[in-house]
């Protein structure tokens, strides 16, 4: 087995060295991913495991490389070096289209919804269903409703409501529901609760949990430790482009994460937990 620097609890699937499509392989695995912008080394040998059915939170201070990392996974930036394994198979994600073909959907911070279109129209934007050249509104409305209902997101009046009339939390819910409509396997969310109030944050986190319970892999980027510990199964901390810690959430606490985020290391340990995850360099 190749050591990836991850701390893995026994219950988790271990990343294997095999490149075949292996049952035990995590949905997404990054090995030694590098990304350089001119003189700036944005990502240095980043290893990361994102298993299905779990919420992986990506923490890190400003400039740590969180956005670059999710954009690399989403195909907006190509990786300069390292390997990306999808279900244990090496893949090259060069464009958002490649990512979408694999089943990777990204919910960006600015929600990218059209205010003048209704919920169904937004959810199907760019992938409308048609029958004999005309839009098949019935099929789209039915599917949209199914998806929203399965996520327990039900609008008060109608899913034909224009998005302009929704609250921030509702808009976030629509954006998330849009991302799961496409049989996606991994949903990446950039600061999904950044602009939301308390009740709406709880609603969105519930929704994130439900996605993972459906078997999807969810990756969220967040600054908010409350959110991270409320919803994440796994944590990964970036510090100046390096993955300094990664592992099940119960091996961390707030202070440990803050230590990693600000200094790249932590000498603390959780009283009730196993050994503190070591820094990522251990692998190299």
């Amino acid at each position: 087995m190749v050591s990836t620097g991850q701390v893995l609890s026994p219950a988790e699937p271990e990343p294997t060295g095999s490149t075949s499509n292996d049952q035990s392989a995590p949905l997404l695995e990054l090995r030694g991913v590098n990304k350089r912008f001119g003189a700036v080394q944005a990502l240095r040998g980043v290893d990361l495991v994102v298993p299905g059915g779990q919420v992986t939170a990506l923490a890190g201070d400003n400039g740590a490389g969180k956005s670059v990392l999710i954009k690399t996974i989403a195909g907006i930036h190509g990786a300069d070096g390292g390997q990306v394994l999808w279900n244990g198979r090496a893949v090259h994600v060069r464009s958002p289209r490649d990512a979408a073909a694999l089943g990777i959907e990204t919910v960006y911070q600015d929600l990218a919804l059209c205010d003048n279109l209704d919920i169904v129209q937004n959810m199907f934007l760019g992938r409308e269903r048609t029958s004999s050249a005309l839009l098949d509104e019935e099929a789209m409305e039915t599917s949209a409703r199914e998806t929203l209902t399965s996520l327990s997101v039900t609008t008060v009046r109608s899913i034909r409501q224009p998005v302009a009339s929704l609250s921030g939390g509702q808009r976030q819910a629509v954006a998330i529901a849009k991302s799961v409509l496409w049989n996606s396997k991994l949903v990446i969310m950039d600061e999904p609760t950044a602009a939301l109030g308390v009740a709406q944050t709880a609603m969105v986190l519930d929704l994130v949990r439900r996605l993972a319970d459906r078997g999807l892999a969810v990756m969220i980027v967040s600054h908010n430790m409350n959110d991270v510990f409320q919803v994440a199964d796994r944590l990964a901390v970036l510090y100046l482009g390096r993955m300094v810690a990664a592992g099940p959430a119960d091996q961390f606490d707030r202070q440990i994460v803050v230590d990693y985020m600000t200094t790249g290391e932590s000498r603390r340990r959780r009283d009730d937990a196993g050994p503190v995850p070591p820094a990522g360099e251990v692998a190299r």
């Binding site: 209902t149 327990s152 997101v153 039900t154 609008t155 008060v156 009046r157 929704l166 609250s167 939390g169 509702q170 819910a173 109030g197 009740a199 709406q200 609603m203 519930d206 929704l207």
Partner: peptide
């Protein structure tokens, strides 16, 4: 059914 969108009071 749990109506999430109801929760934040439309």
């Amino acid at each position: 059914q749990e109506t999430v969108l109801d929760a934040d009071g439309i």
